[in-house]
Computed example of a mutant assay.
Amino acid sequence: MGRVFVAGSINMDVVATAERHPRVGETVAGEAVLYFPGGKGANQAVASAKQGVPTTLIGRLGTDAFGQELRTFLAAQGVDLAFVKDTAGTHSGTAIITIANADNTIVVVPGANAQVDANDVAAPVLAKGDVAVSQFEIPLPTISAFFRRARAAGATTVLNPAPAKQVDKDLLDLVDILILNETELGVLTGAELSDSDTPARFAEAARSLARGKIVCVTLGRRGVLALVENQPLLVAGREVKAVDTTGAGDCFVGALASQLANGRPLRDALTYANIAASICVQRMGAAPSMPTAQEVGAVLSASRPGEGRDP
């Protein structure tokens, strides 16, 4: 079995729920305020660790109360925190989230996440068969340094370019598997896309990013479209009643990484990750909503009894 290493952000999510989102300049009455561990790096690490795969998180926390709570929570989920540093003089990453009708708006304040550097990602020793995962909530030069080390060690690199921003070709060339949604695909390619577009339209846009890598476009309830050697592979999603979509994409990334580290074929790994994300959206919160391997396995067995065997 390989291991999963996640270099990324660790946040406390401060969540306000309301009947609807306010318009610009408007105040609406909220229903509740909740606190959940989050951050894309932490979410993805928890999603992987809960599948029973050895998972190490690389990142930074502030020396504040949120930092202490986050460290305690992540350790309880089985995430290896040997490479998570406490950083004086700054606060832990914080996300301000509004949820209305299962849709969310998010403002992220990076705090200690902005100080994750090349020295941090140089500390862990990766090996062939490992999976190195990162996202865009830590500095891009740090991600490049992480992926260069991973590539040199023979590990598989997985990038989730979120929150979406322009990125140079040199970083993308270090990526083996790119996982993004339609919004992020539009930002990286300059294409005008919407969630109602056909899979063929997404495949057309994704081809400009492929250049020898696998591109996975997550389509929510419609599933995921993977472009493998320029050939589209569509894996159907699972219809559920969503309660909170925060962290669903991170759940997909972490679950997929765990299955790749286990040596699963790509189609099986995509199916598994889809199911994990469908369970995640039926719960409140980001990191706390990540399902266990037993929960995913139960759905997998019920929906496709033969799933899990190599074709």
Rank of each mutant, 00 (worst) to 15 (best):
V28E: 09
A82V: 05
S92N: 04
A18R: 03
T87P: 15
N43S: 11
E31Y: 01
A76T: 08
G67K: 05
S92P: 11
L70Y: 01
V46W: 05
E69S: 14
T72N: 09
P54W: 00
S48G: 09
G78C: 02
I58V: 10
T72R: 14
A32I: 04
L61C: 11
T87V: 12
V28F: 06
K85P: 12
V79N: 02
A42N: 12
A29C: 10
G93K: 02
T98G: 15
V84T: 03
G93Y: 07
A49V: 09
A88T: 12
T90F: 01
V28K: 03
N43C: 13
G39K: 00
A32H: 12
V24R: 15
A32N: 13
G25E: 09
I58T: 02
F36V: 09
R20W: 08
T56M: 01
I97M: 00
V15L: 05
V46Q: 04
H91Q: 15
A32E: 14
T55K: 00
I58N: 02
I97Q: 00
L34P: 12
D80G: 10
P22E: 05
D80A: 09
T72I: 01
T94C: 13
T90C: 04
I96G: 14
T90P: 08
A42I: 07
T17S: 14
I58C: 02
A88C: 04
N43Y: 05
A42D: 11
A65D: 15
I58R: 00
T55L: 02
V24P: 14
E69A: 10
E19T: 13
I96N: 13
I96D: 10
L81N: 05
V84N: 02
E19H: 12
A32D: 15
F66Y: 10
A76M: 06
E69W: 02
V14L: 15
F83H: 12
A42G: 15
E31K: 12
T55Y: 00
D80K: 03
V79L: 01
R23A: 15
E31R: 14
T87A: 14
L57R: 03
Q51A: 04
R71I: 05
A47I: 05
S92I: 01
T17W: 03
N43W: 07
G41D: 07
L70I: 02
Q68W: 03
V84Y: 03
A95D: 10
A95E: 09
G78K: 00
H21P: 13
T55V: 02
T72Y: 00
D64H: 06
L70E: 07
T72F: 02
L81G: 05
A18Q: 05
G93D: 10
A75S: 12
G25L: 07
F73Q: 04
T55D: 07
D80I: 07
V15C: 08
T55F: 00
F83E: 09
E26H: 06
Q51M: 11
V33P: 13
H21V: 08
A32G: 13
R20G: 11
V46D: 05
E19Q: 12
G62F: 07
Q44Y: 03
S92A: 06
T94F: 07
A49M: 08
L74H: 03
L70V: 06
K40M: 12
A65W: 04
A29S: 15
L70M: 04
F36T: 10
P37Y: 02
L34Q: 15
G41M: 07
R23N: 15
R60W: 03
A18P: 12
H21R: 10
P37E: 06
A18C: 09
D86P: 10
H91L: 14
A95C: 11
V24A: 15
G89N: 07
A49I: 06
A88N: 07
